[in-house]
Design a protein around this nucleic acid. Structure first.
Lengths: 204, 204
DNA sequence: GTCTATAACTCGATAGAC
DNA sequence: GTCTATCGAGTTATAGAC
């Protein structure tokens, strides 16, 4: 089963093209024709490598996550001091999002469309350990190192402020006339800004 | 051009059905057949009232916004004290989102798909006056009533914490095992929780 | 206004030549 | 492995009777 050079190359080109098109247009919006065009081949060859659109979709999708989720969990489950942990969490999360800006909208879309099937395929073995984070927050509140706050609200705030700007980019840019370049700078700043905002709010 | 009762009624039933189906499945996922079924009529009649899917889509979409945006702007442009303004802004926003939970994902999706066309149609005459909010934040910083913060970050944080939980609901529920009922309670709480979180972070 | 029937079209998938 | 050509399912949209 030795792969030729051409073999690997075509398959890779397809995956790269598929990632781009899927992330841009979602599962429904993406056309096999678009992906083939982007990859510089035709539809038939696409089906030669990936028997169906579903198969291709799943392949593309699980890729990015397989590396990201364990990284997040390593942060969550480490015994770093709580405030420091928030800083690292945000930095890891924002790094991933800056590298994969279309990912969140894409995922949240599919999650809303067919929650059960999608969740089970993607997160059955690799899911962020928010449970552990919840417990930690409750302990910090009890120890009075942070003011009383429901863990769900704190975690929602944390995730919201990291993820939302990437989903809302076109809206935010339209409403505020921020350029692409300025937006990129803002996202870099948020690695420090978001943890600072949170810590300022919950510290005692 | 007097409309009969049946006339108005059928048209309204279509709009209501379309809103439901579009919000659930997005522009691509929604089927005219689904909408006709939901409205208790058939596809042909649907096309009688709305010549194309695009027309129906735009109609449904702009409706919700025409009432919401002016409300928001009234809050932004009022001379309420800044912290109070944040409280009212969050309450208005969350009220709208609780009543239209599928709206944000739907909108952000379409915004990402065809930014120019969509934005111009929807927001050319009715857009949230974030500019005014930016200026105000700068003034508050200058007056030292709040700590130094880039207006863009503060506004992003504000909008993120209001909007994101509705977009990320399926994800958050899967990761945290929160029930629908508990989630609804949390969203009610956020009317107080989000402004409190923000004010705690920016006050001096 | 409302319906049935069907035209026109899009798109995923396959057959078969090279 | 890669292509052209085409099928067949599913959808939007229209024609035309009532």
């Amino acid at each position: 089963m030795v792969k030729t050079v051409a073999d690997t190359s075509a398959r890779d080109k397809i995956l790269e093209a598929a990632r781009k098109i899927f992330l841009e247009k979602g599962m429904d919006g993406a056309r096999m024709q678009d992906i083939a065009l982007e990859a510089g081949i035709n539809k038939a060859l696409l089906h030669y490598y990936f028997t169906s659109k579903d198969v291709l979709f799943e392949q593309v999708f699980s890729e990015a996550f397989i590396r990201f989720i364990p990284r997040l969990n390593r942060v969550i489950e480490s015994d770093t001091p709580f405030f420091k942990k928030i800083e690292i969490f945000c930095e890891e999360y924002l790094n991933f999002l800056i590298a994969n800006p279309y990912m969140p909208l894409f995922i949240l879309n599919e999650l809303n469309r067919q929650p059960d099937e999608f969740l089970k395929r993607i997160w059955s073995h690799q899911k962020p350990n928010l449970k552990s984070l919840f417990i930690q927050i409750e302990e910090e509140v009890k120890a009075e190192t942070i003011r009383p706050i429901h863990p769900a609200h704190l975690v929602m705030n944390l995730m919201s402020m990291c993820i939302f700007p990437f989903i809302g980019k076109p809206m935010l840019q339209f409403l505020t006339k921020i350029s692409d370049k300025e937006f990129a700078v803002l996202m870099e700043q948020r690695k420090k800004e978001v943890p600072a905002f949170i810590i300022q709010s919950i510290k005692r």
